[in-house]
Design a protein around this nucleic acid. Structure first.
Length: 465
RNA sequence: GGCGGCAUAGCCAAGUGGUAAGGCGAGGGUCUGCAAAACCCUUAUUCCCCGGUUCGAAUCCGGGUGCCGCCUCCA
């Protein structure tokens, strides 16, 4: 099935053709680990990861790189404020990121390179740029000279002359041109620094991504993701540096994801309690968060509010219900469903892949999952056991391509008080003492948060609120 | 100001030339002792506005209007 991907650079969707047959090199700009991971990091992570999952599903061998930029002004500031070593700040935030990635079923990257573990590669890349005349040393810093390549600005649609007008050279900077950017920053006193041919210092912001991407993926990447806010200057500068150094196109597909809004406002700490992943995880099921993020196309902005998430939880439950009814997890392959159900499975499969093949349209793909869920429920209602369960397995499988449905239901153990109440209610029902039965049902809900569902000919099903 | 993006039902959201997916909500029904869950039906003659291209446009082009993002360290 054909895969088409939108590329920010050319502003068009093109058929995906990998640089090396059968293999995909993919880089997603990760966190600058100055603070706890937030919802924006999660969106970028899931957007990139779902692309990776789909490419793997198609049979590609994907090398997936997600970096941590672990040295920058804010990390140093934070460390100083707390009176701890900057490493401690960086590692703490990296640990937090990884644990929330696991919690939300974000597949571990092939490699998580840290900028400070690649100083040698960074220096080699800078040296290459200096040798070729694309960069110059000045006052202990090294700057990239944007005037040397006429295509600077091609990703973000900016012109050097316009940038120049808006910029000033800050105090302490020795650049020739306000639009130039630092590859290497000379060390200030008390700052972490490394030795270099230009004196002690640390890497500038953009160079680490180029150096690490090239190290792990080669000089030409298939896909490069990250938030849309990185298009300028970060990705623009990555292209400039990388292409100047290697003389070849750096990335085939730029796949920046849309921004997250918090209640219509630009995201910031003051806009409520859904900013940090930590806070979200405390309030919303990780499966629901993932589902919600995938229910909008990755390039569109998405609003992150409790209302939206509660709605998503209801919708997601709708998808899980037939899976739970059929006991789809761990089910052995059964007879392929025939007739209308078989057609529904084939149709859902076809449409799902058609959507995913169209620039990873997870929102469209999920829509088709609902159609299949309905058919499975119908089959289950009609008592078409084995075939219905097979269809449920198909639904589970399709969702699995998106990394959904990863939590098999665990046999919930109910406290004895709850079981006693259920038993009392069953007795009342047997006696047709409906008022008493209804009072007990209400009590289960109000006092224990348990919803009771009567199933004909079987013991009632219990659910958490 | 420059660059980019988006405007689809009460809300969310797919749909890039062939006559409006899906979810939430709402209303009606089947099932049920009543519910819940599930299922069925209804809920946009119409896709921000105005022109144009075309046999045909939500989809392409031009012009408006509105909202959002980016414009040196923010995914």
């Amino acid at each position: 099935m054909a895969l088409r991907i939108y590329d920010t650079l050319t502003r068009e969707k093109r058929e995906f053709v990998p640089v090396r047959p059968g293999k995909v090199g993919m880089y997603v700009c990760g966190m600058t680990v100055q603070a706890k991971p937030h919802v924006g990091h999660m969106r970028a992570s899931i957007s990139g990861e779902v692309m990776r999952r789909y490419l793997e599903h198609l049979g590609y061998e994907v090398t997936y790189v997600y970096n941590f930029t672990d040295v920058d002004d804010k990390i140093i500031e934070r460390a100083n404020a707390e009176g701890v070593d900057w490493h401690e700040v960086a590692e703490r935030n990296i640990d937090a990121y990884l644990s929330y990635a696991d919690l939300h079923n974000i597949k571990r990257a092939t490699v998580y390179p840290r900028a400070t573990a690649h100083i040698a590669e960074i220096l080699a890349l800078i040296a290459r740029l200096v040798e070729k005349g694309f960069a110059y040393a000045a006052g202990g810093d090294v700057y990239y000279d944007v005037s040397r390549k006429p295509d600077y600005g091609k990703l973000s649609g900016r012109r050097v002359e316009e940038l120049r007008e808006g910029y000033r050279i800050e105090v302490g900077e020795a650049k020739d041109d306000p639009a130039d950017f630092a590859l290497w920053k000379g060390a200030k006193p008390e700052e972490p620094h490394w030795e270099s041919p230009w004196g002690p210092g640390r890497p500038g912001w953009h160079i680490e991504c180029s150096a690490m991407a090239i190290k792990y993926l080669g000089e030409q990447l298939d896909i490069h993701g990250g938030g849309q806010d990185l298009i300028f200057p970060h990705h623009e500068n990555e292209i400039a540096q990388s292409e100047a150094a290697t003389g070849r196109p750096f990335v085939n597909f730029w796949t920046e994801n849309g921004m997250v809004n918090l209640g219509g406002e630009k995201m910031s700490k003051s806009t409520g309690n859904l900013f940090f992943i930590e806070d979200i995880a405390a309030q919303v099921e990780p499966e629901v968060v993932r589902f919600y993020l995938l229910s909008t196309h990755y390039r569109s902005p998405i609003d992150f509010t409790l209302e939206r998430l509660e709605e998503a939880a209801i919708a997601y439950r709708r998808l899980r219900t037939p899976l739970e009814r059929a006991g789809a997890w761990g089910l052995a392959a059964g007879p392929a469903p025939g007739g209308a159900l078989g057609e529904a499975v084939a149709e859902a499969w076809r449409r799902f892949h058609q959507a995913m093949g169209d620039d990873f349209n997870t929102a469209g793909a999920i829509g088709h999952l609902f159609d299949l869920a309905r058919e499975v429920n119908k089959a289950l209602d009609e008592g078409v056991g084995a075939e219905a369960r097979s269809a449920a397995r198909e639904l589970l499988g399709l969702g699995g391509i998106l990394g959904l449905f990863w939590k098999a239901p665990v046999g919930e153990t109910w406290p004895p008080e709850v079981l006693d109440l259920v038993e009392l209610r069953e007795r009342a029902r047997a006696e047709k003492a409906w008022d008493r039965a209804d009072a007990l049902r209400r009590k289960l809900l109000d006092e224990h948060g348990v919803v009771i569902e009567d199933v004909r000919g079987q013991p009632p099903r219990l659910k958490r609120r």
